[in-house]
Design a protein around this nucleic acid. Structure first.
Lengths: 226, 226
DNA sequence: CTGATCATGTGATTTTTCTCACATATGTTT
DNA sequence: AAACATATGTGAGAAAAATCACATGATCAG
């Protein structure tokens, strides 16, 4: 196991900044860290959530397999707790989490975490803030996907990777067309067609996994208008 | 204004049970209650959320109007806080709330509420629990709507009203076909067709607004399988 | 009672998306 | 390099859903 140094960790969560040195040490004594390569499963849906997972570095997808269909709910960036709602409801992981890039995960003791919520108001407040933001983001996505056609939803994913994950108009897609389909409620074929269409119209340039956004403004328009 | 008696209120939230008599009195001094008739707007999206709304009795829909399209996100039953995430993020109401039945709403002071979160760990814990459950419910709905066709989503709404709201196989629909469309990502026409189809197949009986579920098992099957 | 307004039902047509089928990569293992 | 699995592109047809058009029904103010 890797040597831990939580106090000086540069990838601490924002809410952990409300913890005292003492509390962080307590957390450190009750946590473990693990590395995951792309495609490795971090959390399996329906397993017991004995510990809380925090993405220190890397990229993860949250997904669920129901009635023979895979659905990807979200791509989660580093410095985020995953399955927080699962830990605070019935201690069962409701969704799976799989690494899509090299990922470092801290597994924290749920009970210590819960203790901090009860004893440290500022910490609890931050967790609530975090959950609230998440909820709002989800609901806004739901509203948007109401008026968007598949083209718009795919444009959105491309912009999401460019702006929120890689902060660059050129990036290497960490997921397959099938994954994009699972994420946007479409099929592998539909994604393929839309992407080549974008490519033909010089909105993006595709070279294998490498995507370059050539006309961000237009892609933005497709994202918003449908 | 109606006389308040929060301590003896039978419609208190579960989390409020963690508040001391003193705290409840403090809340009482800083809250107001209002009645809303069907179609009256309780909260308007993009307004400032100066207070937190709690549905004491009644039924409410949460909705949003974006780019000329109305989307209903959820039907909210009584004894629920609405716009809790909005209050804990940027103090802006992200969504509208409109009564769909006679509804009593308590407007609580956000700052007092936030103070309790910071000072009363059990209360904070319950709020987190509540937010978590909500989030999970939302995500499950998203997974489900992935493999469901419009027929399945409409069946789901009917079962929702029967089981979660009215606890009866016979009930009066509190919302229009258009509303059901906004809720299920379909059109007014589509809902109409599906409902008459259900009616013709003796799965439900329609008499104006009155719905009777005749074949719950089959409706359940449509709900699950799509 | 009587327009007027809003909600609903229904057919016909168009648009969008899914499904199936198969070709062509690309990557991995032996 | 050959053999295999896996990922991707593309066409054609089927299915689902949206849109348009219009008729009918319900509700409500005056």
């Amino acid at each position: 196991m890797q040597k831990k140094d939580c106090i000086n960790c540069l990838n601490k969560s924002k809410s952990a900044q409300n913890l005292s040195a003492e509390e962080i040490c307590e957390l450190e004594r009750n946590c473990s860290m693990a590395f995951f390569k792309p495609r490795e499963i971090i959390i399996k849906e329906n397993s017991l959530s004995s510990s809380l997972a925090y993405i220190k570095t890397g990229l993860v997808k949250i997904h669920s397999f129901v009635l023979g269909k895979e659905k990807t709910l979200r791509i989660i960036n580093s410095q985020t707790y995953i399955c927080l709602p699962s830990s605070f409801s019935d201690n069962r992981n409701h969704f799976s989490a799989t690494a899509i890039e090299n990922t470092e995960v801290c597994f924290l003791d749920v009970n210590i975490f819960k203790k901090f919520v009860k004893e440290n108001g500022a910490f609890a407040f931050d967790i609530i803030h975090d959950l609230s933001q998440n909820q709002l983001k989800n609901l806004h996505l739901q509203v948007e996907s109401n008026y968007k056609k598949s083209t718009g939803r795919i444009a959105q994913i491309l912009l999401f990777f460019a702006k929120e994950i890689y902060k660059s108009l050129e990036f290497s897609l960490p997921i397959s067309r099938q994954d994009i389909g699972d994420l946007t409620n479409t099929t592998r074929e539909g994604v393929s067609r839309t992407l080549t269409d974008f490519n033909n119209n010089k909105i993006i340039k595709i070279d294998r996994k490498k995507i370059t956004i050539l006309n961000e403004k237009f892609l933005e328009e497709i994202n918003i208008k449908g």
